[in-house]
Design a protein around this nucleic acid. Sequence first.
RNA 1: GGAGAGGUGGCUGAGUGGUCGAAAGCACCGCACUCGAAAUGCGGCGUGCCUUAACGGGCACCGUGGGUUCGAAUCCCACCCUCUCCGCCA
Length: 426
Amino acid sequence: MHDIKAIRDNPDLYEQAWSAKGRSGVAAQALELDTTLRAAQTALQEAQSRRNDLSKQIGQAKGRKDEAEASRLMAEVETLKGVLESQGAVERDTGEALRDLLAGLPNLPAPDVPPGADENDNQEVRRWGEPFAITSPKDHVDLGETLGLMDFEAAARMSGSRFVVLKGQLARLERALGQFMLDLQTREHGYLEVSPPLLVRDEAVFGTGQLPKFAEDLFHTEDGRWLIPTAEVSLTNLVRDQITPTEELPLRLTALTHCFRSEAGASGRDTRGMIRQHQFQKVELVSITTPDQSDKEHERMVGCAEAVLKALELPFRTMLLCSGDMGFSARKTYDLEVWIPSEGRYREISSCSNCGDFQGRRMNARTKAAGEKATRIVHTLNGSGLAVGRTLVAIIENYQDENGAIAIPQALHPYMGGLTRIEAGA
RNA sequence: GGAGAGGUGGCUGAGUGGUCGAAAGCACCGCACUCGAAAUGCGGCGUGCCUUAACGGGCACCGUGGGUUCGAAUCCCACCCUCUCCGCCA
C-alpha cells in the first residue's frame, strides 16, 4: 500500500512505475479521488463542528428549562442534516474507492532494480559451485520412483495432482532438511524460531499483499480463513497493529511450516515431479527493520539463504530480479537458483525480498524510538531459507550416481542417523 | 457446542444520554527542593486525519461495524476477541 502523500509529492514517479505494469493513469486517478476526499472531509468536519457546538448549547438551554431556545437550536441543527449526510456519503464512498485503488497497486521498484519485462532481463549477481558432471542424469521422479520411496500415483488417488507421497529414507531426508535449515538459521544467523498458525484471517493475507488481488492463488476454508501460501504471512503479521520499540529492531524470525498454493495460474507448468506442488515445506526468514536498516538487512538475508546451499554443496547462482519479474509487494528481490541436472538449468529455490514500508503500511506496523514522539512504519523483508521440497529435488538429482543411488551431503549426516547413501530397498 | 461475565489511554481502573478524549492511581518526562539520591511539590504526558506559511483551529477514535438521538464510552443490533463453568477432543 502506498502513502497517498508520497504520491501527491511525486506523481510522475508513480505514474511511470505503474504505467510500466500496464496501469497508466492510476496516479492521476488516485490524486483526483484524494482531492475529492479532502474537500468532502473539510466540508463534513465544518458541519460537524457546527453541530457539536449547537448540541452543546441545546444541553445548556435544557439545563435552564429554556425549551423555546432549545427548539430553535434543534431546528437549526436540522438544517445541517443535508450537508452532514451528503458530505458524509462522499467521504465514505471516495475514501473506499481510494483505498481499493491503492490496495491493488504494486510496490515501486527500488532505484537500483534493473528495468525489464520478464525473467530474461534478470541480472546474475554471482555464481557458486560448478554443476557436477553427470552423464545422462535422471530426474528426481525417475530416481525416487525407482527407489520405491516416491509415489505420485498414491498421492493422486487420495488428493489429486500436484501432491506426492514420500516414504522411508526420502521422507526422512525431507525431515532432515527442515531440521538442518532451521538449526542453521537459528544457531548461525540469530533468527528466532517461531511456530505460527497456518490458517489466517483476511486481514493477515491483505497485510502481506496476497489479498485482494491474488485470492485465486490461495486455499480458502469454509469458515472464512486462508491456508498460508508461505510463513511470510504468519511471521510478518506478528507486528500487525503494533508499535515495536526501535531498540528491539531488527526482529529476525524464522519458521519451518507447510505452505499451500492452489497454483491456479500454473496449469500445464511443471506438472511432472515435485517442483510445483499444492503443499510443500519451507523454512522462511522474516526481518522487521527500521527504514534505514532494510537495504543492509536485505543483503544479509540473501547471505543467510545462500549459506544453506553452500553447506549442502549445491551449485547455484544469485539473480537480481528486474522490475517486471518482481512480486506485488517487493521493492527489490534476489532469487537463488539451484542447478537441476535433469533440466540442465538453474531453477528458483529461494526468493528474498525487501518490501520497504509497503506491507508495514498495509498492516499498520510501526516503530517508535525511546524518547521520540513520532512513529514510523517499519520495513519488512522475507526470504526462503530454503524451500524444502525443491532442495530435496536438487539433492536427489545432483547427488545421484549411475546406479540410481543418492549420496547424502555431509552436513545432513547427523540428521540422517549417520546414513550416507540412499539405495534401493532402504 | 451450551451457560455466564467482560473488552475504556503504556498499565490498573472510574464513568450508564449533555461542559467526557475521558476521573484517579501507577509508569514516564521536565522543573523545584537536595552536595547527590529518595521522599515531596508543581507542570507535562494517546493515536490518526483535515486545515494553516506558521502560531493555531477542527474532526474522529472508549474491541469492530451499523443504528437510535439535536447530542452516544453510556441505549439498540450484528460481529470479533478474552475469561469462567459444562460438554467434546489431539
